[in-house]
């Protein structure tokens, strides 16, 4: 946690969990993101859409502290990413739930063990978290597959497991990179609704996807990214949640 009397921490206290200001980022010689300005607050759902290779995944990496900004300022959960050390970044990462485009699991472990990993890492005992994890498993609709080894799960089940794992640590910020990839439209929308439900407990959710129709799943602030440039789309106040129920 950032120190009090720190402008970045004050920003976080005011509910701004992500603020990117004029951020450039990329890999090696390639610059993928150009002059990104973005903000996301607690209890908001943001949807970033754009074509393939537009920079959605790179932006997710930036916000999950895996990619440092080359220029500009990135403040995530009160931490200035460009000026922080590995330990501070690790501490902030614990407060971020990340659903990767291709989630990585410990394949030999069961889905249950993988989902419980953030809790184990936090030092909780299995008897303390078993019930919570079972609830999460039911919440994402994984059911009996939770007791199977990850390598035996289908693509959709793996994605549900990834969502459950991202939620297990009760994160303040959830980043979902193409969470509906490989799913039927119905399943995909259910998954996004699941994620968006977390806004009710004050979690900030950021979904990156090529599917612009996901905006219909829940009240969302929409952004469009193309060739590394991000622009807000129709940022009037999001519709009331009830309209999407």
């Amino acid at each position: 946690m950032a120190r009090p009397n720190n402008p970045d921490f004050d920003l976080y206290q005011s509910g701004v969990l992500v603020r990117l200001t004029g951020v450039d980022a990329g890999y090696g010689a390639a610059t993928v993101l150009v002059g990104i300005d973005f903000e996301a607050r607690a209890g908001e759902v943001s949807l970033i859409t754009g074509p393939a290779a537009a920079g959605k995944t790179t932006m997710t990496h930036l916000m999950r502290l895996a990619l440092p900004p080359r220029s500009g300022r990135a403040v995530i959960l009160g931490l200035d990413v460009g000026r922080s050390g590995g330990k501070a970044r690790a501490n902030v990462k614990k407060r971020i739930g990340y659903v990767a485009e291709n989630p990585v699991f410990v394949e030999q472990w069961t889905a249950f063990d993988n989902i419980a990993m953030p809790l184990r890492m936090a030092g909780h005992k299995p008897r303390d978290y078993a019930e919570d994890v079972r609830e999460l498993v039911d919440f994402v609709g994984l059911g009996g597959a939770a007791d199977l080894a990850m390598e035996k799960l289908s693509g959709a089940e793996r994605r549900r497991a990834a969502i459950a794992r991202a939620l297990a640590g009760k994160p303040e910020l959830i980043l979902a990179d193409d969470p509906t990839a490989g799913m039927s439209p119905g399943d995909g929308r259910r998954v996004v609704r699941l994620l968006a439900e977390m806004r009710r407990v004050g979690t900030c959710i950021i979904v990156a996807s090529q599917d612009e129709t996901l905006a219909d799943c829940a009240p969302m602030l929409r952004w469009r990214i193309d060739r590394g440039r991000l622009t807000p789309v129709d940022h009037a106040a999001p519709q009331e949640a009830e309209a999407f129920e």
């Binding site: 999950r64 895996a66 590995g86 330990k87 690790a90 501490n91 902030v92 990462k93 614990k94 407060r95 971020i96 990340y98 990767a100 990585v104 699991f105 410990v106 993988n114 990993m117 953030p118 890492m121 640590g169």
Partner: peptide, 8 residues
């Protein structure tokens, strides 16, 4: 996975 979950 541990790295993604914030382990140092």
């Amino acid at each position: 996975v541990m790295c993604d979950l914030g382990a140092t």
